[in-house]
Amino acid sequence: MKNSKTLAILKDNLWTNNPIFIQILGICSTLAVTNNLRNTVVMTLGVSFATALGSMTLSAMKDLIPRKVRMIIQVLVLSFFVILIDILLRAYLPEVSKQLGPYVGLIITNCILMGRAEAFAQANKPLLSFWDGLTSGLGYMAVLLAIAVVRELLGFGTLFGLRIMPEGFVTWTIMIMAPSAFFLAAMVMWWAKNKQAARAAKAKAPTQGGKA
């Protein structure tokens, strides 16, 4: 029983209720960091950890939090983890910290964090909330990585900074700029919704076959 719920959450956050293409959360960072795979990886890892740990902490103390200050406490706890990540990066991964610069602080503006805290951690057990936060982050990561692969490949001709495209390749400037993420995110949403609609239609078909 427990196991099936864990799996259900995983599937929900990665596919049926993906934060990017279904809930449309965390779009700002999708636009900002996806022109470069390395930044995307660190950013999405940061979001995954902050959401997982934040959700777990908030779930553990949910019975103590008065309704009136619920949101304030949520912001406090989430920003705590974001600042912690920033401090740790600065001390132990100075290069990455320098590269990401303001983006680490911007994790807190990611709607997924508050979204999971409000929608899930409030009503569930700490471990399950941790899992929910983590898988939400992974669902976010999967989409961002897909977009970043296209943008870095066409925009710079590289992947993770390694040259992939041949010498004469003309880079697509628009892929480096934020607007291209709009196109690509929209295409991902379109693809996913189509896929889900097709599957839903298929699942319905056997029972309602006669009516169609």
Partner: peptide, 30 residues
């Protein structure tokens, strides 16, 4: 509400300050 908010803030800020202090030498060296 007041006491709870105060305690929670104090606690989390204390941990952050401690983490900052603990990594300060490393960060300065960097």
């Amino acid at each position: 509400v007041v006491i709870f908010t105060f305690v929670v803030c104090a606690l989390f800020v204390f941990v952050l300050a401690a983490a900052n202090q603990f990594t300060k030498a490393q960060a300065t060296a960097n």
